[in-house]
Design a protein around this nucleic acid. Structure first.
Lengths: 192, 192
DNA sequence: CGATTCTTTGAAAACAGTCAATCTGTGTGG
DNA sequence: CCACACAGATTGACTGTTTTCAAAGAATCG
């Protein structure tokens, strides 16, 4: 049932069978069809979510109704809205599936129990969080330093696998440029 | 000696005198004059750094030699380069003082020991990290969604106190716009 | 003060965004 | 299996924003 998550954890920490059993006991699977929501703006997000299959996106909608993508999350990565999770406030984000996906959900309280009960799990989670932070910092650097072309080239070198799975318009949204500009940039780049 | 840090911790966790003593034992103070470096690109960063007084900035230098500011860190916040700290690789960042500052440094290993020895400290650190992540996400949203004017207005509403302590050119660098554009934006805003 | 740095302002150029039309590919229903 | 509809991508022309470069004007610091 939770093989993907076991495999993921095994690569990063050493757990006993009993500890894996603790984890399994609090995991819930949710299947998402393409375009289906995992979280809608206004709801309170209460989970840690591990994507075991597929691909989801997190985005916000601005005053003009435009979407801005904060995160793409493929299999073997964690997603959710940490802001709502931490504050208990309604989320400003939406999460939905770009591909048919499978998500493993662990409730906030259960997750915290796992962390305090299973020290290697706790360490793993902490390192994942630190890496997420670093990833964010690097994205900020790209967003404030790069031209549209550089943003695109950076994206496809960092995420070569994702580039083919995501509609261009969403990549544009993620990079903070218009779909037309992205199209032109790609055209220009391909001519080199 | 470390009153500011004690005060900070006391607001977020409950520790015994003995636990405070553990912390004090691994703290090192460093004073920084304005413009002095705390970290230079190429060096490995090995600390968690608490700013007890003053204001520092973290920035990177791009291929053209331009600076791009990743973080402003005033008193009562943590700074450093988590990327280098986690990987052990040389840092791509510089950290220097915008004002004369006092920094409390805790070596990586000592910090981890504190975390495992003092559970409330560990929890506090984890929450601070989560909040830092959320702050980053919000900044990404601003960077990819907002116009220059919106970025500036957002900045001064989020950091009203910092706005006066930081040269405009640095705010521009932080926002990813040119100093001239920021000047024009401010002019325009002040006329409303 | 004088020197340096920071900020402002103007004009031109580069860049990215918008709007509208066309093209492409995909999937669906007849 | 084809025709059609639909969404996504491309292209062109235009607009608007932001950058760049240069110069002048403030502010700051020794």
């Amino acid at each position: 049932m939770f093989e993907k998550l076991h495999q993921y954890i095994t690569e990063k920490a050493t757990l006993t069978d009993e500890e894996f059993a603790y984890i399994d006991a609090v995991c819930v699977t949710r299947k998402l069809r393409k375009k289906q929501y995992l979280l809608q703006e206004g709801d309170v997000w209460q989970f840690n979510a591990f994507v075991s299959k597929g691909l989801v996106r997190t985005y916000r909608i601005d005053g003009k109704g435009d979407e801005h993508i904060l995160q793409f999350c493929p299999e073997n990565y964690w997603t959710g809205d940490r802001e709502s999770l931490l504050s208990g406030e309604p989320s400003r984000c939406n999460i939905d599936a770009i591909e048919d996906s499978e998500i493993i959900l662990i409730r906030k309280q259960d997750f915290e129990n796992l962390c305090s009960k299973i020290e290697p799990f706790n360490r793993m989670v902490n390192i994942v969080l630190q890496k997420s932070f670093n990833t964010s910092q690097n994205r900020i650097h790209a967003a404030i330093s790069f031209t549209a072309e550089e943003k695109y080239l950076n994206f496809i070198t960092i995420y070569p696998d994702l580039a083919n799975r995501i509609p261009q318009s969403m990549i544009a949204s993620y990079l903070g440029i218009s779909p037309e500009t992205l199209s032109r940039v790609r055209n220009k780049v391909s001519k080199k």
